Amino acid sequence: MSRTRIAVAASAAATAVVLAAAGCAPQPQSTTPGAAGSAKAADCTTGSPSLHKPGQLTVATDSPAYEPWFDSNTPSNGKGFESAVAYAVAGKLGFAKDQVKWVVEPFAHSYAPGAKSYDFDINQISITPQRAKAVDFSGSYYTASQAVLTLKDSKFADATSLSAFKGAKIGVQVATTSYQAVLDQLKPAQKPSVFNTTKDEVTALTNGQIDAIVTDLPTVFYLAGAELDNGKIVGQFGYAGGTPEEFGLLLPKNSGYTSCVDKALSALKADGTIARLTKQWLSASANVPELKQ
């Protein structure tokens, strides 16, 4: 489902860090937006008291969990981009697959202030300064583009520019960046319609209530392939106030495990794992034209 949000550039991948099967070396204060910094060394062992439940890595995502981020609405099967990334991070931290427990956390609740019932949430959550006031973030694991989806018989199906949507009725999902992206980039004559779920968006599109959906590109692929018989991906465009929109792992504010997760993710980026998983699960995005003004 759509999870695109406003972002600032997250910290760049660090040099490869070797993590021991049972833990990692003490880490300096993180420079990741929202990451907790501490003068004392982080305990990155699988039994760390900073874990929600020591000896177990508790990972959250929303339900339903959509393709291509997950497969068959089953995060625990290791299939789909975000499931695969979560298990790769777990492995770097020393956790076996059976030590990873998945819990449900609605997207809009994930970055709200307060205690969390998980160690990190992976749910296409964009890193933003506003959210980082209430939660911690790792570095980015994916840079997302916005995309436009319509129906094959729509008058907008063959649009080649963002300005072509001036007269369109656009649908977006609540609590996502897409709303502002539509206002700033597509600049339609009327404000976007906001829906609670992608299912609601698809229903509105097929019923003619809206002309197009704007959401993140991988979700557009899923909707066009699995939810619509006559869907047409018009194109993609970048948006986040001039900076890349990047997804990060979300942790409780000032978590003692933030630097551990961030280091594990940085190591996966440095050794090529993240690039390989991106190609495996999200490679279709390369064939979508870019829409400009």
Rank of each mutant, 00 (worst) to 15 (best):
V234D: 04
G225D: 13
A264R: 06
T58V: 14
F95G: 00
A14V: 02
P75T: 12
P218I: 00
Q185V: 12
T74R: 15
A20H: 07
G225N: 14
K166Q: 09
P218F: 01
G80W: 01
D136L: 01
V85M: 08
A84P: 07
Q180K: 15
E246V: 08
V135N: 14
K292W: 02
K166F: 11
L93D: 07
T258R: 09
V59Q: 01
A267G: 07
D153L: 05
D262I: 03
A159H: 07
K152N: 14
A144P: 02
R3I: 06
S48P: 02
G37L: 13
E245M: 13
F195C: 05
T45C: 08
F95L: 02
S11R: 09
F137T: 02
A12Q: 12
P106S: 11
A267R: 03
P75F: 11
S63A: 12
L57D: 00
P106V: 11
L249Q: 03
Q190C: 03
F165S: 04
P49M: 03
S138D: 01
A181N: 05
A96M: 04
L282E: 01
T58Y: 02
S76H: 06
F195R: 06
S76L: 07
T176C: 10
V8M: 09
E290W: 09
A159N: 09
N287V: 13
Q130D: 15
E290I: 15
G55Q: 06
Q124V: 10
T198E: 12
T206L: 11
Q236G: 12
P28T: 04
Y222Q: 11
Y66S: 11
D121F: 08
A20S: 09
S110G: 14
P129T: 01
T45M: 06
A226H: 15
A240V: 01
S140I: 00
S11K: 08
Y111W: 14
A12Y: 02
P113D: 05
A84Q: 05
T243I: 13
H109D: 15
K187D: 11
V85F: 04
A39G: 15
A224L: 07
Y66R: 13
S154K: 10
R3G: 13
G37H: 10
Q146E: 14
T32S: 11
P244D: 01
G78I: 11
P54G: 10
D216E: 12
A108V: 10
W102T: 05
S50G: 10
S50W: 08
A86E: 04
S266R: 00
A147Q: 07
T197M: 08
P26V: 05
V182Y: 01
D158A: 15
A270D: 05
L93T: 00
A42K: 04
K40T: 15
S63Y: 11
T243G: 10
H109Y: 14
S11L: 10
V172W: 00
D158Y: 11
D262M: 05
A270T: 00
G78V: 12
A88E: 03
F137C: 04
K155L: 10
L223N: 01
G248T: 03
